[in-house]
Amino acid sequence: MVVYTQPITVPPAEAALFLVVTINPGKEGAVRSGLEQLPGLTRSVRYRLPENHLSRVVGISDSGYRRLFDGPRPRYLRPFQALEGPRHKAPATPGDLLFHLRAKTTDLCFELGKLVMEALGDSVTTQVEVHGFRYFDERDLLGFVDGSENPTGPPGDASVYIGDEDPHFRGGSYVITQKYLHDLTTWQAMTVEQQEMVIGRHKQDDVEFPDSVKPADAHIVVNTITVDGVQHKIVRDNMPFAEIGKGEFGTFFIGYSRNPEVTELMLQRMFIGEPVGNTDRILEVSTAKTGTLFFVPSEDFLDNLPDAPAHPDTSESTAPPLTMAQLKEGIANEGFK
């Protein structure tokens, strides 16, 4: 049976809007009504300028899913795991729904975002709103190309879309988001050679350093996930953002994966270190301000929402966080590459 997926593995956009919202008490029915309008709203705005390639992805968190839907749950859906390492912290922050809007131009992202929020009305409260933009040749505000290791084509689809391991949610995905702020004053005081050792790549041409040269705590070393000899990748669609008047410059990290444990293991390696203390050098200049995990359902799911629960579950999840060893075991046992 053909399953229609949300558009995750698409070419990099030039503009993006990220909205993370929470559901207000007693407003679950209104939110479901708003979600039912999403496919139609997306088609209406996209049709006005089809050449600008508007796309929309909606994600639902553990808390949002328990409040909105009855029946089976996605296998790996759980709250974002906050991390506190020897020097750096990755906070967990509120969020029931994620809207990730992308296009060639900002106007389409704005228009669809406005219509989505009008459809939801007073049923939600905005927790995060970030307007992303393309910065030169796909670079972040640190000046390095971002996302060049993303898998594409069939390998990209295999990395992000759920298959037979969770057949009820085939064609779905998971996404973890974090808002990072950069200390550009400290970063710009470093030489280009020092910056390159933080990342593990040449800044100008984006060529990766040989393994013999890269430090063990370089960004691309820490973020390479290999379990039992198999490298597991995610699809990043990070975007730079800035509020110049506030002096805030950053990257909105958004990583899609078929199994969120791959991204969770990546974050544990970044913030705690493997071994402990070997944390990602980029965190010396980049601070995580938010952290959320969402299930990304298929388009079929959105076109025919599951039944609402008789009594929305508003309790807090009590699931214990997974250790690095448990994450590795889960990834190894999953059986897909």
Rank of each mutant, 00 (worst) to 15 (best):
V130H: 08
S286V: 11
D164R: 15
G163V: 03
G172M: 03
Q37F: 00
F294Q: 14
R46P: 06
E14A: 08
R236E: 07
Q188F: 03
T226C: 06
L98H: 01
T5Y: 08
M239F: 15
S148E: 13
G85Y: 11
G113E: 13
D137R: 13
V285W: 09
A92D: 12
L49I: 00
R269D: 13
T279G: 06
P167E: 07
E248F: 00
V222L: 08
E261G: 13
R78Q: 11
E165C: 05
R139V: 01
W187Y: 10
L108P: 12
G171L: 02
V276M: 02
D228T: 00
D122N: 10
A218K: 06
T318W: 01
L181S: 08
D280I: 05
D307R: 15
E111W: 00
A308I: 01
N278W: 12
L68I: 05
K114R: 12
S286P: 13
A103C: 05
E274A: 02
L302Y: 08
E118R: 02
A308N: 12
K328P: 07
D137V: 01
P297K: 02
L108G: 03
Q268H: 10
L98N: 11
D122K: 01
D166R: 05
M190V: 01
H53C: 09
V2E: 15
P321R: 15
P260G: 08
V160R: 07
S159C: 02
F249K: 08
V57H: 03
E274N: 03
I254S: 10
T105L: 01
D107Y: 12
M197A: 04
S148F: 04
V221H: 14
P260N: 10
N238D: 02
P154V: 02
L120T: 01
S55Q: 07
S298L: 13
L141Q: 10
S173R: 08
S55K: 11
G132V: 13
V213H: 03
L101K: 01
V285C: 15
G250I: 01
R67C: 06
Y47F: 03
P275H: 06
T186G: 14
S44R: 11
L327Y: 09
L101R: 06
F301Y: 09
K104F: 04
D70M: 06
S315I: 01
V175M: 07
I331L: 00
P155E: 06
S315W: 02
V20L: 00
E28L: 00
D146Q: 02
S61V: 01
L283V: 02
G200E: 09
I234T: 11
V2M: 10
G40T: 02
G85W: 03
E208Q: 15
Q194N: 04
